[in-house]
Design a protein around this nucleic acid. Sequence first.
DNA 1: CGCAATTAGTTAACATATTAACTTGCTGCC
DNA 2: GGCAGCAAGTTAATATGTTAACTAATTGCG
Lengths: 166, 166
Amino acid sequence: MKSSPANNCEGDVASGTPASATLSTHRRHLALELLASRERFMLHFRPLLTHHSLTEQQWRVMRALAANGDMEPGELTKRCVILKPSLTGILSRMEDLEWIERVAHLGDQRRSVVRLTAAGRALHRKVSRDVEATYARIVRDIGQEEIEALHNALDRFNAALDRLAR
Amino acid sequence: MKSSPANNCEGDVASGTPASATLSTHRRHLALELLASRERFMLHFRPLLTHHSLTEQQWRVMRALAANGDMEPGELTKRCVILKPSLTGILSRMEDLEWIERVAHLGDQRRSVVRLTAAGRALHRKVSRDVEATYARIVRDIGQEEIEALHNALDRFNAALDRLAR
DNA sequence: CGCAATTAGTTAACATATTAACTTGCTGCC
DNA sequence: GGCAGCAAGTTAATATGTTAACTAATTGCG
């Protein structure tokens, strides 16, 4: 970036791409910024989950079950934004830890219903206290409006993408 | 535990947690929504990258190098939001594919500098055309304002989190 | 009824994420 | 000059992400 002239990638190889096109890649990258913001936010929670020996995904599953009651794996994949093959392993491990159990789905042998065990519910309550306390502190420090503004922007963005998808 | 009406998790186990607290978990979860929005957005690009046999992370690295010139792994981890242990493998594979190469860092044997090869630059130009075309179509369909509004909300959120971190 | 097309989940193969521990080179300071 | 401490990367172990292929159960419909 300073002394040697051809440190960068343009100019000397500008056979098919004018400099302006190359420079246009300096635009902002939404996917990357969504990822970065989430990371920054999660910095405040990950240590908490790790302390309770919970992964992020296990926590999402546990929270979904605690908040919405028993549900099938298929619905968990949607609510938790976890792909089916990943969920297979996650549920398997949570079952080994006896945080959840699977009960047969009456009327469809392919399906099953996932349910928190008593131990799972107890763990959820404990972790939930820590998580909610941390969240409350963040909201207090940076302001509810900031959070809601971001939620709204995300909602509008999602809606726009959904319209586009059809 | 099954046929009884208590299909959910509250009420029967409300020893230490009042129902209101349990119900409060129905609040919106920012980390999850950031993840979900990013997924929705990436749905439009992932097939593209897959078509070129590129992973998301490889594309981030390639784009960072193309846009900002050669840089050290340490800076790539920051710009691409990839942890160091992950980057080790990513760079190793990209090196095998001869998309990048590592040159020695004069003056510090621990470091190295990552550089796109000619093949890497060529691939970047090709993929970049597809990606930018798709992005342009999305912007045209959902509006530049929507995108910028989200960028702004993310910026404000990041700034608030940064203030909090110190 | 009978079978093609769907659907829920799993398996497989490889890439990445996450935390902790480790290696090596560098830097400051006595 | 030498050693404590730090900084850059890697290794290791486990969990998850991603795509494709696969199994088994169900549904739709002639």
